[in-house]
C-alpha cells in the first residue's frame, strides 16, 4: 500500500505542464478559428436578433418571409437543387462512360485532370466563357441562328436568367460530381463484372446492385453539389450584373452599400444561409456514416 500508488500518480504540476504542452499545438488553430470564424458567425446571429429599438427581436427573421427575401431563398434553393440534380445525373453518366469501359481507357487520365480543372474553373472567367458562347453575340448563339435558323433569344432564352445560370453552373457541377463518384464507380466495376458473369443485363445490374450500392454515395455527393452552388456568388454576379435575386447577391448589395437596408436584416439573411448549409452538411455526414456499413 505505501508505495503502490506513487508510481502511477501524476503530480498536479506535471499535469498542468502536460495540458500546457498539449494546448500549444492547438492554440493557433483555436485562436484563429475563434477570431475569424466563430466570433463573426456569432456576431451575425446576435446582429440578426438585436438592433431594433426594443432589444432582442425576431422581426428581422420575420422579414425574411416578405416576398423579396422569400423569393431570393426560393430562387437560390431552386437553382442549387436544379444544378445539383442535373449535375449529379450527368456527372454519374459521364463518369460511368469512362470508368465502366464504354469509352477507350486512354481517355481516363485526361478526363480526370480536366474534371479537376473544370471543377475549379468558376467565377468571373467562367461567366466570360459562357458569354462568349451563349451570350447574345456568342459563338453558339450566332452559329444556331446563322446556320440552323434557331434564334435562341427570340425564343425567350437568356444566358442572364435562371436557365442560363443553371447551364453555366453545370460547368463546374458536373466535373465535381465526376470527381466525387469516380472512386465509388471504380469500386462498382467489379460487381458489374460479377453480375454479367452471372448472366445479368445492364438493367438487372443497375436495378439490383448498382443503385442500391450507390444510393447513399449519390445522395451525399448531390448534397455537396447543392452546397457548392448555394453559396456561389461570383459567377451569378458577373453573368447577371447582380440582377438575379439570389440570397448571396442580396447580401452583397447590403455589403457594397448599393442598396440601403438594415445591416441586421443582412445578418438574418446570412444566418438563414448558414442554417441551410448546416442542414445540408449534416445530412451529408449522416449518409456518409451509414455508407461505411457496407463499404469497408
Amino acid at each position: 500500500m505505501p508505495n503502490a500508488p506513487t508510481a502511477t500518480t501524476v503530480s498536479p504540476m506535471r499535469r498542468a505542464n502536460h495540458i500546457w504542452a498539449n494546448s500549444v499545438w492547438f492554440l493557433p488553430l483555436g485562436i484563429f478559428a475563434l477570431l475569424f470564424l466563430l466570433l463573426p458567425s456569432i456576431g451575425l446571429f446576435i446582429g440578426s436578433v438585436t438592433g431594433g429599438p426594443h432589444g432582442v427581436t425576431l422581426s428581422y427573421f420575420g422579414q425574411l418571409f416578405q416576398n423579396q427575401y422569400l423569393d431570393a431563398y426560393k430562387v437560390s434553393i431552386e437553382l442549387s437543387a436544379t444544378t445539383a440534380i442535373v449535375g449529379a445525373a450527368a456527372g454519374v453518366a459521364l463518369a460511368w462512360a469512362v470508368v465502366g469501359g464504354g469509352l477507350p481507357g486512354f481517355l481516363r487520365p485526361f478526363f480526370l485532370t480536366f474534371s479537376g480543372v473544370a471543377s475549379n474553373f468558376a467565377g468571373i472567367p467562367l461567366a466570360f466563357a459562357f458569354t462568349a458562347s451563349l451570350g447574345p453575340v456568342g459563338l453558339v448563339t450566332l452559329f444556331l441562328s446563322n446556320h440552323i435558323g434557331l434564334n435562341l433569344y427570340k425564343h425567350g432564352f437568356s444566358l442572364f436568367g435562371f436557365t442560363g445560370l443553371a447551364i453555366t453552373y453545370l460547368y463546374f457541377q458536373i466535373p465535381l460530381m465526376v470527381l466525387l463518384m469516380v472512386p465509388a464507380l471504380d469500386h462498382l466495376k467489379q460487381w458489374g463484372e460479377a453480375a454479367s458473369n452471372l448472366g445479368a443485363n445492364s438493367w438487372q445490374f443497375w436495378w439490383h446492385i448498382g443503385l442500391p450500392i450507390l444510393r447513399l454515395p449519390l445522395l451525399g455527393a448531390t448534397l455537396l453539389l447543392f452546397g457548392n452552388s448555394f453559396g456561389a456568388y461570383a459567377t451569378a454576379y458577373a453573368l447577371t450584373s447582380g440582377m438575379i435575386n439570389l440570397v448571396p447577391i442580396v447580401i452583397g448589395q447590403e455589403l457594397s452599400g448599393n442598396v440601403v437596408f438594415s445591416p441586421n436584416l443582412a445578418d438574418a439573411l446570412a444566418v438563414g444561409m448558414i442554417v441551410i448549409m448546416i442542414t445540408v452538411f449534416a445530412v451529408y455526414l449522416i449518409t456518409n456514416r451509414n455508407e461505411a456499413r457496407w463499404q469497408r
Binding site: P40, L44, I251, A266, A270, I274
Partner: peptide, 16 residues
C-alpha cells in the same frame, strides 16, 4: 468553413 459561404464570412467580419 464549408457551411459558411464566402459572402457570409465577409459580412460577419465586416460587421464585427
Amino acid at each position: 468553413p464549408f457551411v459558411v459561404p464566402p459572402i457570409v464570412l465577409v459580412l460577419g467580419l465586416v460587421h464585427l
